[in-house]
Amino acid sequence: MSPELTDQTKKKIEEIASRYASKEAALLPVLHLVQHEKGFISQQEEKQVAHLLNIKPIKVKEVVTFYTMFNQKEVGKYHIQVCSNLSCSLLGSESLIDHLKNKLGIEIGETTSDKKFTLMTVECLGACEQAPCMMINFDYFGNLDKEKIDNILDNLE
C-alpha cells in the first residue's frame, strides 16, 4: 500500500544509525522519521526499518507496540491529544474532551470521516503549568477552554 521510503529518508537513517554502537539503537529515531514521512507505521514500514537496521521485524513490532507515540494505524491530518492526567483534569480537561467529542462527532481513538482529525487522550504532556493542555501533531496548546479550542480547530485547514 505505502510506497518505499525515499532515498533521502534512507540516507538520513544511515546517518542516524552511525551515532550508535549498534544499529538497532537507532530504532526509535528512525521510527519517528518514518512516521513523520508516512503518518503511521504499518507492517511494511516495520519490515523496511528492520531491514535497514539489520534486526528482525518482530523486534520492530515489539518496540512499536510498546511506545504510545507510534501510530499503528492511520491518523487524521490533525492528531489531537488531550492530556487527561491530574493537573489538567483538576482544571477541567474532562469537559474539554467531551466538548471535542461533540464538536468532532467522534469518540476517543477515532478519526473523523474526512480524515482531518483524530482524537486521543494522553497521560501528562509535561506542560502542567498551562493546564488544561493538548497537543495537535507536535504543537502544544495550553490554558484551554471551549472557546479557545473552537478557535484553534476552526483555524486549521
Binding site: 551515532r19 526509535l28 519517528h32 510498546f66 511506545y67 504510545t68 507515540m69 507510534f70 494522553v122 497521560e123
Partner: peptide
C-alpha cells in the same frame, strides 16, 4: 565530545 539528542516515544 559528541552530543546527540535521542527522542523517546511515549513511555513514562
Amino acid at each position: 565530545l559528541d552530543v546527540y539528542v535521542h527522542r523517546g516515544a511515549g513511555a513514562y
